[in-house]
Amino acid sequence: MASKKKRTPNVQNDSWVVVAADSVIDTQKPDSDPAFVRLRNPSTDAASLYMLGSGDVQLYEVKAFGEDFHSWFVGQTVQRDGRLLFITPMDPLYLILPYLITAGKEGKFQPVDQVVMDEEFPVCSRLLSCTRSLASLHHIAEEKEVGSQKFHRYSQEKTMNWLKKKVERTVVALKKRNISVGEGVKSTTYVRMKSESDYHEDDYLRYAHGLISEYISEDLSKALLKHLQLPELTSPKETEPPSKKRKLSDKPVEAGEDYTKFNSADFLRKPPKKMTAAQKTLAKVDKTGMKPMSSFFSPKGKAEKK
């Protein structure tokens, strides 16, 4: 009865459940549909999925909500993966930034279309078509105009100021949405006694910095942390909650709780006994009021039965 269920690997889908603003699929130019593209993720340096809106005017990032044991019923079909994709607007500057940094090492002013190039991800040049891209390059680079041509050179200082603004705006958003940023409790469904006002500005800054770090390289993230004048969390000691203060008293010091029982061998993570799947299922059944099998075979039980 309790046969073990085998998991079959997720097969490739040709449909997805997506949450996106209507504007994402607005076709602004007649023959250019919005398209999923693979671009270099500035934070991981690996490929990630993005979306370019119609005419490449807007960049979107694609995030997937996925948890075990979820599936969709879509119309008259079942979608095996319970994933929910979110397509949300994204500042293309984050993706352009790594290319400018690399080119900036040469210290020269260069035309940006010669900088944003990637053999692995040729699509990246389309990032420059986004409305915001060229107009906001001055946030991360110095500009020089020679004739009708514009040249750019990466500026760490400008970038830090730009990222700082991003962090500050994120803090505003975090406060507005009541996102809990405190250390320790990691459940979003947990009801907090502490009101949000108890969090320090630093907590918000650090949290926002962490979020922005999802969009920049590790080096930049560290530099930004310095720029924000937040101390770097390196040693595990600092991530630990502060130890409880022991009250001073005249009484002799005694252990408050006995943890020695946890040291015994059978308190390891492994289940104490190996049971088969069938035994486990059986063990879960509520057996109140049920006779054991053996009772039917004992002489008395037999007499009772018939």
């Binding site: 693979r38 993720n41 991981t44 690996a46 490929a47 990630s48 999925l49 990032e61 694609v62 995030k63 997937a64 909500f65 996925g66 948890e67 994709l85 979110f86 996102i179 990691k186 459940s187 979003t188 949290y207 962490g210 979020l211 999802e214």
Partner: peptide
């Protein structure tokens, strides 16, 4: 923020 919400990037 992302792990708590089970959000991941896709490739």
């Amino acid at each position: 923020f992302l792990t708590e919400r089970r959000l991941t990037s896709l490739n």
